[in-house]
Design a protein around this nucleic acid. Structure first.
Lengths: 335, 335
DNA sequence: ATCTCCCATGTAATCGTTACCATGAAGCGC
DNA sequence: GCGCTTCATGGTAACGATTACATGGGAGAT
């Protein structure tokens, strides 16, 4: 593969000048620039990004570590991150942590070894010594969706609390009084937040929140299924279930159907995270929609601000309730 | 950030020896190795992958260019590729072409500039001068799922044809005689193959395949919707529709429901690509399942074989029919 | 005791760029 | 016409690693 030296030789000029042309430095005579450009096309030369990175200490690459690529929420998030990064001239390397802290650490280390310019992370849990150290050591880091308390980096996330209140109000309005939650892992920030908002909302309607109406899952379908099974085995099963993410909602739906019960007639179901498929499930699922694209875009912007040394704040965007048929019929049905 | 020189200084030794320890070269006295290791942990040293790559001409990174990350089939494929690559000590940079040839070229170029060791591509269409040239120039390339005729690189894909025959037989068995297809773009190999298999299957049952029962989409939901609308507007609409990918099936379902019709009572629906959500749609969708994980794994193995200079063949894996309720009731219902 | 040979280690070239400094020519004011 | 600035360009050190080759010391063979 041709190098800058070959181009220089071909154009009868020094490598320094070729480099100037490449980086469109102003001090190059137009005639020379043309000669260089000609040599470049003749040789099919493309600058070696590796060498460039070594010299400039920049890779124009961002690392994105997420918990589960197969979760449509994270897929959409990754897509948004990639789009925005490309717009700004950056590539993205995605690391899929699969909700495993060790795998997350593996990816963080591997990305740092590749000298990515900055890191976007949605941490698997709320304490990662490695991430804390990385952030402290000055590597530009931004948390996306989830974060780690005590680690001082910008956090880009959606505030679900008011939408959760709306959801509970919606359920209450449809007559539900025994409402259960399939929560996320209690060692994730999103896991906790959603539970807290949920309990507050119950409280504000004077509803009880007994322990047996709260199960913890791991954001995977199978755990949603197990949690639903526990609820349905109770002597006074809940009339409505709120799943803290889309995959657990799917699992719960699975279990409910498996028992020959119907949503919403026998039991209502709602989920955190809206995804296109929810329109097409049987019945369409009521969900809390996060502004996924905006989150990804804001995350990249924040990280690039950090890279460029600009001041960067955390961003919290609103989530909103999207009522469909899975909690019972209401007058305000949306498509 | 500490470099190999710092480690050498700290251990009172030359950089060559540190490098030997790093690459566990045998000719290092255990005592020296320990001193080096100690210095490494004290300094928190991590080798600079960029410098290493420049020197060794290897990045231990693979490029994966796919047509649409948001399509669950490709998401799962990407996931499988990443898993297998990690097992083999490689990272993956994913480029999302969004079914746009120019974006695909952008990613290919950007990946090559980063000097990835090899490229996995699922081409957006069946002719890409850039990819042809890249392959000819000796860069290790493997095609995944789709390929480009005339470009001589290994192709890893699923053979859908026998499963398509099974599907048509299934539909025929349920009494369907007017069967339509929402095909993929005719300039993709998968688009064509599925149509050909479909028409052959119709033919073998003595069924006609009039032009009005064939529409082309672009593998996106909206196009499935439009195609379904055309079929439903006919004076003799088909009784069954086969969509050549999952997103177009989704769009078709959307349109059918929008018109107040029911699947399968008013019209049957089946899709190419099985995805977890199809279990939960209303009704559960009959689909042709590709061995997605195996495809991804085989793709990576083939590419690494190529990198290591081993002989590499194309691989074709079988797809299979997964009958559910969307084509009408049958005795053999699967969960 | 001397000669080999091998083992552990050091020296330095190299990968492909960028960027600093030097250099010579040209332009300009006086 | 002289000195000074500016411009276009060249030479070359560095970025951080790997690796071929050189080197010196010790062990084993004779």
């Amino acid at each position: 593969m041709a190098s800058i030296k070959d181009v220089a030789a071909r154009a009868g000029i020094s490598v320094a000048t070729v480099s100037r042309v490449l980086n469109n430095h102003p001090a190059v005579r137009p005639a020379t620039r043309d000669r260089v450009l000609a040599a470049i096309t003749e040789l099919g030369y493309r600058p070696n990004g590796v060498a460039r990175s070594l010299r400039t200490h920049q890779t124009h690459t961002l690392g994105l570590v997420i918990s589960d690529v197969l979760n449509p929420f994270f897929t959409a998030l990754a897509r948004a991150v990639e789009d925005q990064a490309r717009d700004q001239g950056y590539s993205v390397i995605i690391g899929n942590a699969d909700e495993q802290p060790e795998l997350q650490d593996h990816h963080v280390r591997s990305l740092l070894d590749r000298r990515i310019d900055g890191l976007l992370v949605s941490p698997t849990d709320d304490s990662s010594p490695l991430l804390a150290e990385v952030a402290r050591s000055g590597v530009p880091v931004v948390f996306l969706d989830r974060w780690i308390p005590g680690v001082d980096v910008p956090v880009i996330r959606a505030a679900g609390s008011s939408a959760v209140h709306d959801l509970v109000a919606h359920l209450y309005g449809l007559g539900h009084r025994r409402i259960a939650i399939i929560a996320g892992p209690s060692n994730t920030t999103t896991g906790n937040e959603r539970v807290i908002a949920f309990r507050e909302a119950l409280d504000s309607h004077g509803l009880a929140a007994p322990d047996r109406y709260q199960q913890h899952g791991d954001y995977q379908a199978a755990s949603g299924r197990r949690a639903a099974a526990r609820f349905l085995d109770l002597h006074d099963p809940p009339t409505a279930v709120f799943a803290a993410d889309n995959l657990m909602a799917l699992g719960a739906m699975d279990e409910i159907r498996h028992r020959g019960l119907r949503v919403p007639d026998d039991i209502a179901l709602a989920a955190f995270d809206d995804i296109p498929w929810f329109l097409h499930t049987d019945p369409p699922l009521t969900a809390i929609a996060q502004p996924t694209g905006a989150l990804g875009h804001a995350g990249v912007r924040a990280l690039i601000d950090l890279l460029d040394g600009r001041a960067t704040d955390s961003v919290t965007l609103p989530a909103r309730l999207v009522p469909r048929r899975s909690c019972g019929e209401s007058e305000m049905e949306h498509r």
